[in-house]
Design a protein around this nucleic acid. Structure first.
Lengths: 220, 220
DNA sequence: TTCCCGCTCCCCCGCGCGGGGGAGGCGGGG
DNA sequence: CCCCGCCTCCCCCGCGCGGGGGAGCGGGAA
């Protein structure tokens, strides 16, 4: 059975684009649209979509409030994929804190968009580099560790992957990381690939940026 | 005979949206798409569209340059409709000065989009006056870049090198930086090499780490 | 037991990256 | 005046990186 999606965005153009991209997939079905957050809860109740692809900035009820409302007042709520134009949009972190499952940039390629929808539908978390950042700050000054753990859980990094990311964020090459962890370089490559995939990073540079932005590693 | 349109935008999602909106009209036909400004001139020569719906912010060649190139090197050039996300985008006015015929916000409703395309096809100019006014208001601000400037001087980075480092720290590849700065990739490589040498970094990842650790770029 | 998952290692392959050179234009300062 | 720093673009070249596969092993959950 196909993945059913509800589109929520105040710009009809974006809705049309998402619909065109998603409907091209045989296993994805767009079951409805809404132009603002206020319409989301009743629509979800009626349509029961697997995934809600939702803009953060919307009139009446923004993505944060809509996410909160969904999780509070709907049982077996759908997965929530936050769609936005900007990497550094404060609303995004609010939405993620409110319980959204993923974060997707509008400038993503169609394949990435489709991939994101499938992933969150399967219960995976999906975060893009700069998005995780204030997550850490919310956990207070005491716990760099707690923040790091939170990020780990969000991105579902394993312990080993976390170690590898930490070493990447210290500027080590794969070979150096391999030496440090006393494993083969091929092993490190596997971990690095996993980290990149889970963080939504394209290369190790973006992964390191994500590590800083999320508070997973701290400057100084 | 129908109005033929060429879509130029680096975001596939936007192209898909525009296509969906415009193709729903019997008298409008989307005859082609391009993802950057560099591809526009040859495409226009081949397809001879009535209207080019073009984003302003694009890699390789932005909307301004692409507009200029079209008007300069194509005879009987198509009407140019500038499409953008922001009302107060400096690029827009540059494009209009370069000879674009109209200006359209992405958040416009489908009917407005269709209307805009028909209008410019008929030779009408289309401007959103309210947006032009807001331009001037946005001119003054030049926030706290003083800290960044201090770091820049300490590392003896030139202004251009600082720009490049900033974009590196946002996870862009050399090609993307080249697109953003409207220079060749070889030029960017030169700047990157200079940055690495001056920062004592082995690769771009270490340079980005240095940028964060020095406060040249700040998390959050 | 069976299945899944994390960790480990292996292959091939394309490409972006970074180093090494060089060169032309352009502006400011000695 | 000439020189130098900056920005721009070009060449060649080696290699690290990242994606695509696959595979064996151990442990914990179903």
């Amino acid at each position: 059975m196909p993945v059913t999606v509800l589109l929520v965005d105040d710009e009809p153009l974006v809705r049309a684009g998402l619909r065109a991209v998603l409907e091209a997939q045989p296993d994805i079905e767009v079951v409805g649209e809404a132009a603002d957050g206020a319409a989301v809860v009743p629509l979800v109740r009626r349509l029961r979509p697997d995934v809600v692809a939702m803009d953060v900035r919307m009139p009446l009820l923004d993505g944060i409030e809509a996410t909160r409302a969904l999780l509070r007042s709907v049982d077996a709520p759908p997965k929530i994929l936050v769609v936005t134009t900007f990497e550094n949009d404060e609303y995004v972190y609010g939405a993620l804190r409110a319980g959204a499952d993923g974060f997707l940039l509008k400038r993503a390629r169609p394949a990435e968009i489709v991939h994101a929808v499938r992933l969150v539908a399967e219960g995976e978390s999906l975060l893009f580099p700069a998005s995780v950042r204030r997550l850490a700050a919310e956990y207070g000054e005491d716990g760099g560790n707690r923040a790091a753990r939170a990020v780990l859980e969000r991105a579902r990094l394993t312990e080993r992957e976390g170690e590898v990311l930490r070493l990447m964020a210290r500027g080590l090459t794969n070979a150096e990381i391999a030496g440090r962890l006393v494993v083969g370089t091929e092993t490190v490559k596997s971990h690095v690939s996993a980290v990149l995939a889970k963080l939504g990073a394209r290369d190790r540079t973006q992964a390191v940026i994500a590590a800083y932005e999320s508070g997973f590693v701290a400057p100084g």
